Amino acid sequence: MHLQAYVIEDNPTIRENLVGTLEELTSVRVAGTSATEDEAIGWIEANPDGWDLVIVDLFLKQGSGIHLAERIARRRPSQKIVVFSNYINPSVRKRCAQIGVDAVFDKSTEIDALVDYCAHQCFRIAQAHREAA
């Protein structure tokens, strides 16, 4: 069972490396990517059941990760929103918690923690499917 992820990151190198790392080290399959808030919202609205996990940077080519997370706050309980950014501090973590972000990771120091989080979510999805069968 794969976890379907959607990645919103404006730096193409970081985006490609993140997608490759997650697909290589976990059961994540990236269903799509974008560099802007509007493009991401368009995809998410067109594919409401096409994702289990959204990974979003705070600063995008257009828009912001915080605003995007606010816009998709109403979702199925099994769908998770993760912020992955270089600009993480206690006030950002607090704001993310207030708007319903499920996890926050610093790009410079917490990539392993993000991979672990994704692996755990893959396990959780697989377990739920086994229990439902």
Rank of each mutant, 00 (worst) to 15 (best):
G65Y: 06
S78V: 13
N89R: 10
D52H: 13
E37C: 05
V82Y: 13
P48L: 07
I88K: 07
G63I: 02
F59M: 01
N47H: 15
D57Q: 11
R29L: 05
R75K: 03
A46W: 03
K61I: 05
T26D: 06
V83K: 00
W51T: 11
S64P: 06
A35C: 04
P90C: 01
R74L: 14
V28P: 01
R29D: 06
E37V: 02
P48Q: 09
G65A: 02
E70V: 04
P90M: 04
G42N: 06
G63W: 11
D52K: 06
R76F: 12
T36L: 01
V28S: 07
V54N: 05
I81E: 03
Q79N: 12
A73S: 08
I55T: 08
K80Y: 15
S27H: 07
D38F: 06
A31D: 04
S27V: 04
L53Q: 06
A40F: 01
V28C: 01
G63P: 03
Q79S: 11
N89C: 05
I72N: 00
I88F: 00
N47I: 08
I41E: 06
K80Q: 14
E45H: 13
I88R: 02
R29M: 03
V54Y: 14
V30Q: 05
K80R: 14
G42W: 05
D38C: 10
A73F: 08
L58P: 15
S78A: 13
T26R: 04
S34E: 00
L68M: 10
L68F: 13
I55G: 14
V56K: 07
Q62F: 07
V82T: 09
R76G: 12
E45N: 12
A69S: 09
R71F: 14
S27F: 10
D57T: 06
A35S: 06
Q79F: 14
I88V: 15
G65P: 08
A31E: 03
L58V: 08
G32Q: 04
P77A: 08
S64N: 15
T33R: 05
H67D: 08
A31P: 05
V83H: 09
F59V: 09
I88Q: 09
D52R: 11
I81Q: 00
L60Q: 13
P77L: 01
T33Y: 02
S34G: 01
I41V: 14
G32V: 02
G32C: 06
V54A: 11
V30K: 03
V30Y: 00
I81P: 00
I44E: 03
W43Y: 03
H67Q: 12
D38A: 14
L60E: 11
D57M: 08
R74T: 15
L58G: 09
H67G: 08
L60H: 13
R71A: 15
